[in-house]
Design a protein around this nucleic acid. Sequence first.
DNA 1: GCCTCTTTTGAGAGTTACTGTCATTTGACA
DNA 2: TGTCAAATGACAGTAACTCTCAAAAGAGGC
Lengths: 218, 218
Amino acid sequence: MKSEQPTAALPDAPTNPVQARLEAPLSLRERKKLKTRQTVRREAYRLFAEQGYENTTLEQIAAAAEISPSTLFRYFATKEDLVLTDEYDPVITAALLDRPAGEPFLRSCREALIGLIRALLQHERQELLTRMRLVTEVPALRAGLFRAGNSPQELYLSVLTRRAGVEHPTYEMRVTAAAIGAATVEAVLQWAAQDGREDIADLVDRTFALLESGFAGV
Amino acid sequence: MKSEQPTAALPDAPTNPVQARLEAPLSLRERKKLKTRQTVRREAYRLFAEQGYENTTLEQIAAAAEISPSTLFRYFATKEDLVLTDEYDPVITAALLDRPAGEPFLRSCREALIGLIRALLQHERQELLTRMRLVTEVPALRAGLFRAGNSPQELYLSVLTRRAGVEHPTYEMRVTAAAIGAATVEAVLQWAAQDGREDIADLVDRTFALLESGFAGV
DNA sequence: GCCTCTTTTGAGAGTTACTGTCATTTGACA
DNA sequence: TGTCAAATGACAGTAACTCTCAAAAGAGGC
């Protein structure tokens, strides 16, 4: 159950930044929780693919994952969370804060995102495609992306605030975070809508080129 | 009940573009429907103000408006719609399409929006403040703003598509609509969060200045 | 290995937003 | 006034949550 790398890690094996946080020594309790989360999500995606998001009830998911509905609600507060929550936020935040402080924020985002996405796609491309395709298809999920709590807007805003070393964001920071958040969401959704055929790095590049140019030509 | 301007309209009286569409000769049936809609909304906002959005049930609203719950659902498909639907979209669309075709889209938006908002505030300032304050406070409503169907993004996108005279929007149009939509929402919410103390035209101006400059200085 | 404490889980009852059906009422129109 | 279509209300049902409380399971000291 913890049979990871019995000998030595391949020197150049690309490490999955998300999975990496799971390698830390965990208690039995925490390992079980993690496993349950994964099982629930896997069963949920399977059922969503088979019957559609709206036609799948939480009871069915709980039954498939072999837990009680009560427990399901403890793991995922809402049905949307099954699709919308992930463990990327701290990684993205760290990557953004790693960029040089003087760099324009748009440039920081472009560089950090392209790097992260490339790494991520090597490991979780299929799951990401499944999730994002669901988001494009189910209106409730698309709206949920902008729900308070873990929206991309809030992530960008917290980074902007921290970079500036201030306590409360300015209005300009809010607008910037909102616009970049919506634009990057659009990039990922466009990628998923085409089943990942278009290179997502290209899409992100075009997105930020547009933002930097002040929407020239539109 | 239709006692509007019994003598003659004041020559410079600013006409309310929204109310204007209601002056058309309507059948009794349509007048009643309109009246019911207004009553329901009025009672809903009153209850929301008294007890909060989440603590108010649709049954209470139906009872206060003296209609059955079934009928309430026929007027407003969801609870969010009580707050999020309005009659502004056609007016905004028309104003945007009225701008010169060669004008950069950002400029069109800035000019059209500032004009519309000024006109609107003269008539429905208080109601708009109430609604938008609710949106800032209730996460579900904020998310609902981006639900498919009548989001600002979709409005901008349809205008962009029509202006270009094409059938399907380009990816650049999508990103533009998403970014401007999120930015303008932010402007309105900021205005409401401060109880309308800051001039909304200033906020819109600052918003578009930021977008035009490619987020210079952030 | 056993005991105790804390965390996690499951069972069950309740609330509310929403859906669908069907009979009744109400306005439109000749 | 009579006929038809649209609007309404009553009712039954579903599913996503919420709350409470007791049982089960892992953590840690002995």
